[in-house]
Write a protein that binds this DNA or RNA. Structure first.
Lengths: 152, 152
DNA sequence: GCGAGATAGTTAACATGTTAGGTATCACCA
DNA sequence: TGGTGATACCTAACATGTTAACTATCTCGC
């Protein structure tokens, strides 16, 4: 039992694994002209009546300024529709268009098939363990972790 | 024992965890005016005589066009130095400057201290398990995983 | 009603990610 | 030796990430 800190490059390791996974899905998304970010939104929005941008940011992990651009391009491509709320003119409702819904219904089965291919190759145990650890970590309140003092 | 596929959003889960971790380190890097990408390079280059861009791409997970811009800005900030190889004029040697080395020596202890704070809060078991799974996944030959057939 | 502060979303400026394609150089063989 | 293909790196064009600052609207207490 060593007391030595591991100080691994955790962000790099997470990035590496994410890239490996995404690279298996990217050909599918490219084939249909959707970006990975657009897909993050579509796959959630597909099964909702509408979502507010703030909610999309939290669910799909966007910063607000990024989302503004992504939504603008998706609306230009007729994948989504934006509408100001009557009751609060600051807020917006985003909904998927027929074209967007059809796209999800076409792409989703391919994404799931590709995931199964990955699962078959890597093994269900390892992937399940990864998901379990990530789930466990997602439940933590990371904001509560203190920050080191910075020199003036 | 369910046969139902989990079809989790693995890229999103990995992104989420990475963001949580990075967000704990970002104030440190911002304080010293270094980007996360520049830090990925510096922390490796610090302990080498020099590296070729291709090697940096593989080690630090950059695509070549991204790296070109990052290295250009780092050279403008006098953090690194680029030099064409005599023996092969296509290739370049990148080395860290005194300023870059001093920066790493200042920032690295803070990064390690912050990592320990995270470890104390999350628990060594969970973080170690995460690292272990990621290590295991990094050993796979992802390129060998077949791709689903795409409709014409 | 009104005015200070909060909130939702955007714009601006810059750095990086992604894809396609370009340039210079090199290795190798006819 | 000369030409063809491979290699290392770069540029271009566009989408996204990050931080700061801005606009419009709302809430609430006075």
């Amino acid at each position: 039992m060593s007391e030595t800190p591991l100080h691994p490059n955790l962000p790099l390791m997470l990035l590496q694994t994410r890239e490996e996974v995404i690279n298996r899905f990217r050909p599918i998304l490219n084939h249909f002209g959707v970006t990975e970010q657009q897909w993050r939104i579509l796959r959630v929005l597909r099964f909702r009546v509408s979502m507010e941008p703030k909610e999309i940011c939290e669910t799909c992990l966007f910063l607000s300024p990024s989302l503004a651009g992504v939504l603008a391009r998706m609306e230009a491509d007729d994948l989504i529709h934006k509408e100001r709320m009557e009751s609060d003119l600051r807020r917006v409702n985003v909904s998927v268009t027929d074209k967007g819904r059809a796209l999800v219904d076409t792409v989703m089965p391919l994404i799931r098939a590709q995931y199964l291919l990955i699962e078959q190759h890597i093994g269900r145990e390892t992937l399940g363990e990864l998901c379990a650890v990530l789930d466990r970590l997602g439940a933590y309140d990371w904001e509560a972790i203190p920050s080191v003092a910075l020199p003036s």
